[in-house]
């Protein structure tokens, strides 16, 4: 298991999630995010990454999803009974898949909604706004544009900046790379890394883009059909043959011919 888990900011213990009372989606997922870590949650579309993040941030209720087993601890305390609002106050915030900026609000208004739960006064909020603009100079340029009319990259920055305005200890970041040009993806991951290093924000990062995610994360979990099938240090995962083959798309030349057979076998082993 994760060596640094001695001091976890988040631990998810064997949770099961059911949608609409019947659709079992997570079948016992456990993971740990150490304080100050960047942990990647990888897996194909439909594996259950978003569901896992929403289980943590308590946004499942709005989708008729329920955590029926297991426990989720944020800073050592059970948080399942809390509202998303309480969790944000405690420092755990989600940046949803597909950005979800408020389209009719300006970029600056979007950022300010991130400070909704704060009670430390306008001056402190102003200061953090400047800090967000320092990390994302593009947002400053577009501060008075309606978010709905900005580009995908700008919206992703806006969504992350908005989360930052809540002064989070941990950000649950869902597929930040989705639909963005490779260069922009790098730019955003660089900023994530910087936020992690300078602001001490921990990240749980759901991604389909295994390649990028494993370069920036310290640790990774691979999720398949609602189960963790593999986990390890990011470096180890990058070199793992299975990961290379199924998620990084770099199968060895010589294996091409019997690739399908092996594929089948490995899948079977993972799913067992």
């Amino acid at each position: 298991m994760n060596e640094t888990s001695a001091n976890p900011i988040l631990s998810v213990n064997n949770i099961e999630v059911i949608y609409d009372h019947v659709i079992l989606v997570l079948k016992g997922v456990s993971l740990t995010v150490p304080e100050g870590g960047i942990v990647a949650l990888l897996g194909a579309n439909g594996a259950g990454k978003t569901t896992t993040l929403k289980a943590v941030s308590n946004l499942l209720g709005a989708e008729r999803g329920d955590v029926t087993k297991g426990a989720i601890l944020f800073e050592g305390e059970e948080v399942q009974a809390l509202s998303p609002n309480d969790l944000v106050k405690r420092g755990c915030i989600q940046v949803m898949e597909g950005r979800h900026c408020f389209g009719h609000l300006t970029i600056e208004e979007n950022l300010l909604t991130g400070a909704y739960t704060r009670r430390d006064g306008a001056a402190a909020i102003r200061q953090d706004l400047d800090k967000v603009y320092a990390y994302f100079p593009r947002l400053k340029e577009r501060r008075s544009s309606q978010a709905g009319y900005t580009s995908g990259g700008e919206q992703q920055m806006c969504a992350i900046g908005r989360a930052l305005m809540s002064r989070p200890k941990m950000i649950l970041l869902d597929e930040p790379s989705m639909g963005l040009a490779p260069q922009l993806v790098e730019e955003i991951f660089e900023i994530v890394k910087e936020l992690n290093r300078k602001e001490g924000v921990s990240f749980l990062l759901a991604e389909q883009n295994t390649n990028v995610a494993l370069r920036y994360a310290t640790y990774g979990y691979i999720l398949e059909s609602g189960r963790i099938v593999l986990d390890g240090d990011a470096k180890a995962l990058r070199e793992n043959e299975d990961v290379k083959e199924f998620y990084l798309g770099v199968g060895g030349e010589g294996r091409r011919s019997f690739r399908n057979v092996k594929h089948y076998k490995r899948r079977k082993r993972w799913l067992a």
Partner: peptide, 12 residues
């Protein structure tokens, strides 16, 4: 604009 996103930033 967006219920879900509002929830996610801690608006009750």
């Amino acid at each position: 604009d967006d219920h879900q996103a509002a929830l996610s930033v801690g608006i009750s």
